[in-house]
Amino acid sequence: MTQTLLPVTDIAARGYAHPEVLVSTQWVAEHLTDPKVRLVESNEDILLYETGHIPGAVKVDWVADLNDPLIRDYVDRSRFEQLLRAKGINQDTTIVFYGDKNNWWATYAFWVFRLFGVDNLKVMDGGRLRWAEEGRPFETTAVRPAPGTITVRERDDSRIRAFRDRVETHVARHKPLVDVRSPEEYRGERLHMPEYPNEGALRGGHIPGARSIPWGRAINPDTHTFRPAEELRTIYQHENGLPLDDEIVVYCRIGERSSHTWFALTYLLGYNRVRNYDGSWTEWGNQVRALIEKP
């Protein structure tokens, strides 16, 4: 260790509904050579992994690896299985995600892996930044694991993913929606990207009835780790009234930041009917006659 850091409470003591999905940096350090553990780095910064990664970690890029190159959708079962095998993943492998941006992309990869029913998934609490601040090692050596043998199921979009028609019904039924974008995006003050139509929207605002809860609120900015359950409950339940047993839809711009909130609600607080609307604002804000609210 080279820096004095604010300590973090043990994951087991934070009151999470499913503490088993989070592991500490120390846990990862102790399992670097565990053949049953595969570390997967997933970042916003496409070159970050190449500048140094946790020893033994492989890279999964959300665009190049998880998105279908033609249709706006995720890869199919065959491609996904091929990807996982290339990363040395077997049926009994424990996969530990970590990445930049407070694990924003790590939880996105986690969510996509869950669409395919992959089990034994965990996230390294604090992400890449915490690992770095603790002075733990990085390496630039190329990681080329022996091909894995995992078999994955067909993707199941019915449980944790929401499509536009479901969201429209959700709005009509006045069910809870969470907009995890920045307040400026929520208010429709920031519109961008005609030159990048894949990420742009023609209209600004938010889906009617959505609560604005920026995704980063789930993170303690001093430690980069998830806030304890009590603090999360204050944010999501007391301040914003999200009922634990209700159907909830979360969204952002393309479904990445909202996967972070999906993760926090589902695994840390125990909500079991949360869906991520990955069409998000790039779909809703471009849709003819879609209802939009602007404060």
Binding site: K101, S182, E185, R190, L191, H192, E195, Y196, G200
Partner: peptide, 19 residues
């Protein structure tokens, strides 16, 4: 609307989504 925020607001805009 071009995908960029230019001028004095650029830094704030670049930070914006991280909040």
């Amino acid at each position: 609307g071009t995908g960029l925020v230019l001028g004095e607001e650029a830094a704030a805009a670049a930070r914006g989504i991280g909040v």
